[in-house]
Write a protein that binds this DNA or RNA. Sequence first.
RNA 1: GCGCCCAUAGCUCAGCUGGAUAGAGCGCUUGGCUUCGAACCAAGAGGUCGUGAGUUCGAAUCUUACUGGGCGUACCA
Length: 611
Amino acid sequence: MVGSENNQLASKTPFVSNNAFGSVSDMLTRIFAAAFSEMGIASELGKVVISERRDLSNYQCNGALAAARELKQNPRQIAEKIIDLVRKSQEREIFSTLSIDGPGFINIKLSDKFLIRTLRSLQQNKIIAPLPANELKHTMVDFGGANIAKPMHVGHLRTTLLGDCLQRLCRFLGLKVTSDTHLGDWGTQMGMLIAEMRHKFPELPYFKSDFNGPYPTESPVTIEDLEALYPQASKRCQSDKESMAQALYETTQLQNGVPYARALWQHFVNVSIKALKEDFAALGVYFDLWKGESDIHDRIPAILERLKKEGHAVTSNGALVIPLQDPTGKEEIPPLLLVKSDGAYLYGTTDVATLEERLEDLHVEQLWHVVDKRQSLHFKQFFLAARQIGMAGPNIQLEHIAFGTVNGPDRKPFKTRTGGVMKLKELIHQATDEARKRLAEMRAAADYDAAEREEIAKAVGIAALKYGDLMHDHNTDYVFDLEKFSRFEGRTGPYVLYAAVRIKAILRKAKEQSLAVGPITTITGIERELMLELLRLPDILYSTYHKRMPNYLCDYAYDLAYNFNRFYLECHILSEKDEDLRSSWLGLCDLCLFELETVLSLLGIDVPERM
RNA sequence: GCGCCCAUAGCUCAGCUGGAUAGAGCGCUUGGCUUCGAACCAAGAGGUCGUGAGUUCGAAUCUUACUGGGCGUACCA
């Protein structure tokens, strides 16, 4: 029979393989898909999802309803047959009940045996199955959006946290990842800075035409100087044509590699990178590469030549552009500009050259740009151009991971009280302050020494900040409310952290009392909910990856913490007299901590030992 | 003008392929600590899912028109 073959097929792809724990809903889907196809119905309809009616089931399959429309049959009868087939399969011991409710929903309850067996294997190995081999693409995450001479501010928060979460998640799921900030270290802004330096400090050796010796190894400016210099330079050039001409002149000197300009520029870059690394480090964010626009500058002429020769790039209104055709033919897409009429390169030019480098030298297969959604037209143009000129083939994934603005209570982009741009450093300080305040209010950690208290405040502050940001769907704007994010009640980082710390406290006490942390063996009541929650981890990780939606991780972390708190309240673990039950519960605590810490670490949040 | 996105409880937000009674947190009302950290938990009130029409057995979800808001629209990034 076809059917038994299908069932065997399903059982040959266990969701626990090589000790690695996979998706339960995928595993159930395989079983149901086999049953659907055995009935001659499209197997896609066998999709099993986590139940929306927790009171009725753990998982559900709605495929019979859709099948009923195609087959023009009664959905309940179809569901009946599906259930019969599943009951006959080798997998029947997974289920405690399979029932049909409403118009034809198949409600699935898992057996205790299955639940215990599965969690025990996870408990032993603590390995989550990586993505299937064909999905393990070399992924580049381009995020952070750092620039020379410009401080990191609140506008960099989302790209940094989102990008970092994505790179952590990809690595966790077995992908090869290369992250790159792609510094804005080239172009007119750099010329403007040099011109400003010449204007203010003409006595520096860089500006002496008769200077022969090597230029100083010490930077003439600090990061603070640079940050102050940049707005002045920018303002001067905007208001004064003469200054702009000077800036363009310096830009040319730099691009032609004239020593004084290069030397000065190198100082700017060094000083800036040092400061940027500190900013990122304060958030626990690290990059594999610190490439910049300057790195690909030399590639540009050859690319432009080729594009002109191949007819991809044409002159239009004095500029060199790639005309774009919308594949759907519906809308008109403005061309991608490569060279301005004054000869300067643009955003799109460096993007194309950088893409070439990433594809040819680094062999990246998947490229994610984590950038403000206001730039979506640019990325649409850039990606389309990359396809049109044949640079990115069909196997290359290009994606703009767009995010909305961080708003203040007035729903306008977040500002300081005085109306200025909030620096990232300042934001982290405020988060730490808020956490410190909360901890003091609750008289928490009062008996710890000052250094530990400070460390805890930092950890809690970062958790509040990161969770508060990442919990929101990145496609939309959100209201930044530090006071709210820092609460220990509700859907916040500190709440989740608290649950994890509670577990650590129990495990510590258990160890002190030499109580065994054993395999999970029993289900008595409320902990079943927690166990079902624990079963979802792989599903959550995979869907977070596939949708590129870290907010799923945040939701899940909260659900875990909440379910643990319920279990904790109801079951008094350490005082439990039944040794087996106690060690089973301790095992459950340990597993829950493992999952919480896993999810939090993907969000970039560390759990302190106590708080 | 054209294009993209958004509109869900008093507030901030979820809502996975079109599915059952639209969820959560905060706030509000009420209840639970001689026991592992009450920084917790439980219960309740609160909704014409922006408006109208359409597709469907079934729409917050898909189509369409409209209203209100955000953003972008060739030489900035």
